[in-house]
């Protein structure tokens, strides 16, 4: 009986949440955001290293599929994602990677691009989506459904308010993690 009550409570909570705020609602909010520029701080925690590696820079998104990540410290690097081509410019070298070849990078790209664009179908191709919180303070957890990606990535946690993404955290399969914090610059 107690168990049934708990279950009913959970059901109620779930249905109540979905009426107010669900993945579809969040995706619709995110899709409305046509782009903008943000400062980022990325903190990578790697088991082999004694302290996290911190990178900072600017990120520019133009809907639906152009994302530029310009790292300023510790080393200048420009990462440009256009459709499925990822080009990385670094130390005078330009590397163009076709993401179809790189499941690891594709997982990375799909998560961030799909979230930015509010493209639920793209996200659900590779991840199971779990939403918590309210429109003003939401947390979307992406759990890889493809075993190849799961071998590399435990989960991705995106948090934000309304159509703005505040943090993206990647937790890799080996426990190493990176936390990306975004601060809008202007024009949003």
């Amino acid at each position: 009986m107690k168990r049934i009550l708990v279950l009913a409570g959970l059901l109620l909570a779930a249905s109540g949440a979905s009426a107010a705020f669900d993945v579809a609602q969040l995706m619709a909010d995110l899709a409305r955001n046509k782009g903008g520029k943000a400062r980022f701080v990325e903190t990578r925690t790697i088991a082999l290293l004694d302290k996290p590696v911190v990178a900072t820079g600017e990120m520019t998104y133009t809907a639906p599929d152009r994302l530029e990540k310009k790292t300023l410290t510790p080393k200048a690097e420009t990462l440009l994602l256009e459709r499925n081509m990822l080009s990385i410019e670094r130390e005078k070298q330009k590397l163009t990677i076709n993401l179809g070849n790189q499941p690891e990078a594709l997982a990375f790209v799909d998560s961030i691009r799909g979230t930015l664009a509010g493209d639920r179908a793209a996200l659900e191709r590779s991840y199971g989506l779990h939403l918590a919180g309210t429109p003003d303070k939401w947390t979307l957890t992406l759990l890889p459904s493809d075993t190849r990606i799961a071998a590399l990535l435990q989960r991705i946690v995106v948090s934000g308010n309304r159509d703005r993404i505040r943090t993206i955290e990647y937790v890799q399969a080996d426990g190493d993690r990176s936390l990306l914090t975004l601060e809008p610059i202007a024009g949003r």
């Binding site: 990325e42 990578r44 790697i46 290293l49 590696v53 911190v54 990178a55 790292t71 510790p74 080393k75 690097e77 990462l79 990822l86 990385i88 670094r90 590397l95 790189q102 690891e104 990078a105 990375f108 190493d176």
Partner: peptide, 16 residues
Amino acid sequence: GDSIDRLASPAGLAFK
């Protein structure tokens, strides 16, 4: 040092 810096980038992630 370069390798550690690269870990901050997806370009270096594959080499981790």
